[in-house]
Design a protein around this nucleic acid. Structure first.
Length: 477
RNA sequence: CGGGAAGUGGCGCAGCUUGGCAGCGCGCAGCGUUCGGGACGCUGAGGCCGCGGGUUCAAAUCCCGCCUUCCCGACCA
């Protein structure tokens, strides 16, 4: 097992096979394995972006661009927000050699600049709602970073909306949580708990924070997307007021919601197995790789020609496909390498196949090799891809179910979290002191509460007082 | 900032205890044989042994100082 990764671990891909092979991916829930797939990870991110952006457009949002540098005085208007983010903000103090009169904060998130702009855009309820999103990078000073899960600079999407009523804003926050859940489950094949955060875990300045929580292969929890109902907090701080339909002055109601490149880490760590990544076809940069096999020069010619022709046919059917025609590696090497990168489907094409007018199709989930008539490859490819998509979701769901337990008392909760990990569900009284006690003894936190309150089903598993909520505990990244 | 560990060809490491020609595996280059599950042979290139000082005939190795990186904790999408 490698404990020190190569310094130039962002270079790709000459050395990465070696590293991943030795990186103990299984033992580490792929956390370390993920460190070698940075460029590949951003290629995946591009497809996740598209899936999200399509849905933002479909729900009436527009993309916009706001400034990255925020004057300190502007940043400091919302008290809770300031308290929450100040320790993590990078500050620009100079322009060239001259010191700035007022330091500029590099955005850790953009509520402050955006609500400052909204103040100028809104006078009437007829100006609402404002439904904007931006794709950008943000920076936060982190004590320790972990590739994709927590980096000092990361790419994300942040949506910011303003509404004339509390109900409408609240519905928006829930609607965007639904979008996140849909993308996680249907596109990324990651089963998630779509719930509500306890007050202690809320976004600074929010009145309610909704989350999608996923379980990684090592049974740890990963917060994979959040949607916040901001109440009127930012509207008050930045004076976003308007005249409502009754002629009264009111403050706008807000939401904000974001998904970051952390979700790439979620894909890696949810689906990866001991042979490497397993990518959901919908976000795989390469969905099908064709590996040509040949010994003699004459075979090489006809095999490559057939491979390219098959590639063009698949490409014409909107499949992201490539031929691995590298001459310095033999087929077995290529098989392993593409499995490592998680490409969902491989097509093997060699002299034997051409003689039989067929190809061998292998998917990354079952690993089965099937011989398919060459003429049918294009039509069966989407089916196989769809099987992989479903198979990954089914695997992940079964894994999560296997590692989710009911806690009937504190001893069980405590021992369970420490010895077995996973998610533990049980009644909670709603008191912070009980959250704190669990965290102190097990490092676990409440990952989610049901979105709509449900019967907790008994007394608090921590203190024994009346239950108020049904909580899901887990140890998070 | 507290607690640990490590710095030696591109990568992973051995050598240090007991000072004496700087090594191994992978990768890389050339040639040949190979090619349906991570090929093999031969030849070869590539080093300020983290930096500075000291001890010694002689330092990767011993001594002093410094620097850097990684891991664990506090922060967090």
């Amino acid at each position: 097992m490698v404990t020190t990764l190569p310094k130039q671990s962002e270079d790709f891909p000459a050395w990465y096979v070696e590293v991943v092979k030795q990186s103990g991916m299984a033992e580490h829930g792929l956390a370390r394995g993920s460190q070698v797939i940075k460029p590949w990870g951003y290629a995946i991110w591009e497809w996740i972006q598209r899936a999200l952006d399509d849905r933002f457009k479909a729900t009436g949002h527009e993309n916009l661009m706001f400034p990255m540098l925020i004057p300190r005085s502007l940043f400091e208007k919302e008290a809770e927000h300031v308290e929450g983010f100040t320790p993590q903000v990078w500050v620009v103090t100079h322009a060239g050699d001259s010191e700035l009169e007022e330091p500029l904060y590099i955005r850790p998130t953009s509520e402050t600049v955006i609500w400052n702009a909204y103040a100028k855009w809104v006078q009437s309820y007829r100006d609402l709602p404002l439904l904007y999103n931006q794709w950008c990078n943000v920076m936060r000073a982190e004590m320790r970073t972990r590739l994709f899960l927590r980096t000092s600079e990361f790419l994300w999407q942040e949506g910011h909306t303003a509404h004339s009523t509390a109900d409408e804003a609240h519905a928006e926050a829930l609607r965007m949580q639904d979008v996140y859940r849909e993308v996680a489950e249907d596109v990324l094949a990651i089963p998630v708990i779509a719930g509500r955060k306890p007050a202690s875990e809320r976004f600074p300045g929010a009145e309610e924070t909704y989350t999608i929580e996923a379980m990684m292969r090592d049974t740890k929890a990963l917060q994979s997307g959040t949607s916040h109902f901001l109440g009127q907090n930012f509207a008050r701080a930045y004076d976003v007021s308007f005249l409502n339909d009754k002629g009264e002055q009111d403050f706008a109601w807000g939401t904000s919601w974001g998904v970051s490149t952390r979700i790439v880490g979620a894909v890696v760590m949810t689906h990866g197995d001991d042979r490497g990544l397993r990518l959901p076809p919908l976000v795989a940069p390469t969905q099908i790789v064709i590996v040509p096999i040949y010994a003699s020069d004459s075979d090489q010619g006809r095999v490559l020609q057939a491979a390219e022709s098959l590639r063009d046919d698949l490409s014409g059917a909107n499949v992201r496909v490539r031929v691995d025609s590298r001459d310095q590696h033999r087929p077995g090497y290529k098989f392993s390498e593409w499995e490592l990168k998680g490409v969902p489907v491989r097509i093997e094409l060699g002299p034997k196949d051409l003689d039989a007018d067929s190809a061998v199709i292998v998917d990354r989930v079952s690993g089965e090799k099937r011989r398919v008539p060459l003429a049918q490859v294009v039509q069966s490819a989407p089916e196989v891809l769809s099987e992989v998509q479903k198979g990954l979701h089914a695997d992940a769901l079964a894994f999560r179910d296997r590692n989710t337990h009911e806690a009937s008392d504190f001893a069980e909760l405590r021992e369970g979290l420490i010895d077995q990990g996973g998610f533990w569900v049980g009644p909670w009284c709603g008191e912070f002191s009980c959250e704190e006690k669990v965290t102190e003894e097990t490092k676990a936190t409440i990952r989610a509460l049901p979105r709509d309150r449900v019967d907790p089903g008994g007394p608090c598993v921590v203190c024994g007082k009346a239950g108020l909520e049904r909580a899901t505990w887990g140890i998070s990244y």
